[in-house]
Amino acid sequence: MTLSFDKPVRAVVTGAGGGLGRALCLELARRNARIVAADIDLAGAQETASMVEKLGSRVHALACDVAQRSAVAELASSAASLLGGVDLLINNAGVATSGPVDAIPQADWEWIMGVNLWGVIYGCEQFVPHMRAQGGGHVINVASSAGLLCTPMMAPYNVTKAGVVALSETMAAELAPANIGVTVLCPTFFRTRIIDAGRHHGENGASRAASKLMDRAKMQAPEVARFALDAAAAGTLYALPHADGSWLWRLKRLAPERFYQKLVPRYFSRFARR
């Protein structure tokens, strides 16, 4: 389905308490959407809702831990009741961990898998049947260029985001006959709280480097949000808002072994020294 904002869209956004989730809610409000803003941090979701209301849109703030299947099921039921249906689901909630693959404890693997991957799976599982029943809808799964490029010191994050890309590709083919569109958003760096709230291991410098790149990025959360919604409206599967991510993805597809055996280690080593 090609998403249309010609009439009010009924949208659910997870991870709406700040960062990209808040930017998505605000951009949806500018497009006259009706919104459910969900976050494990209810106070953050309520703050987002207050900002949305000032733009004149109807919004409901709900608490939801996307790592819990029962919580996502309750979110889907509540959203359908509050909005009268759901046209757009944005699986945005996410966390981060970094460090050498052999230094990351199992608890952190389970934590990031629960939010970044299972949270998206639960969202699709619970909302897609509603979309089938109403005759269509659209899903935006927020992944990352990390799911396409898989750089060192980010194994758990890479694994979860690659899973989101694979899920989105599968859904795009599977759900097209049901008039349900899918977009997977794969940004590189922009300013959010994900690094500050992450779990980082070892003296790898990856989190500090990522923070610096986030601050330097020309395209920040508001621009990424607009890009994502425009991509969904255009029926685009892969949405890569940042030029560096787009070019690196093309380079990887052109020469994947050279990319991982030569270019990535060399670049990462040079960047770590800086």
Rank of each mutant, 00 (worst) to 15 (best):
R132W: 11
S144W: 00
M171S: 09
L42S: 01
H201M: 02
V36E: 02
R253Q: 10
G202W: 07
G15K: 03
A37V: 03
A173D: 15
E74I: 11
G94T: 01
N91I: 08
C64M: 08
G205Y: 05
A67V: 05
I35W: 10
T236G: 00
F259G: 01
R58Y: 14
F127G: 05
V159C: 07
P265T: 04
F271E: 13
R191Y: 13
V128H: 03
C150D: 12
Q126A: 07
V59C: 08
H138E: 10
Q126E: 11
H242C: 08
E53A: 12
A61M: 08
G181M: 14
F271M: 14
L263E: 10
A45L: 04
A239R: 08
V264M: 09
H138N: 04
P222G: 01
G136C: 02
E47L: 13
V95A: 05
A166G: 08
L42A: 08
A221D: 05
A172G: 10
G56V: 03
P8C: 06
H200S: 04
A146L: 14
S246W: 15
L149K: 05
R250T: 09
V264H: 03
R266Y: 14
S57H: 03
A233H: 00
K54Y: 12
K161N: 14
K161T: 12
V142W: 02
L62D: 01
V264I: 13
R274I: 12
Y157C: 10
G202I: 08
E125H: 14
L83H: 09
A63G: 09
L75R: 03
L248N: 04
L237W: 00
C25H: 03
L254S: 06
D196N: 13
S4R: 10
Q134T: 09
M131K: 10
M219Y: 01
R253L: 06
M153I: 15
Q68G: 12
P241I: 12
A221L: 09
A61D: 02
C64K: 09
G17S: 01
M113Y: 15
A45V: 06
G163D: 06
L229G: 02
Y122F: 12
V13M: 08
L42P: 00
D65F: 06
H200D: 05
L167S: 10
L148A: 05
G15H: 03
A37Q: 05
V128A: 11
P265M: 01
R216G: 05
L251E: 12
G147W: 05
G123Q: 04
G198L: 04
P100L: 05
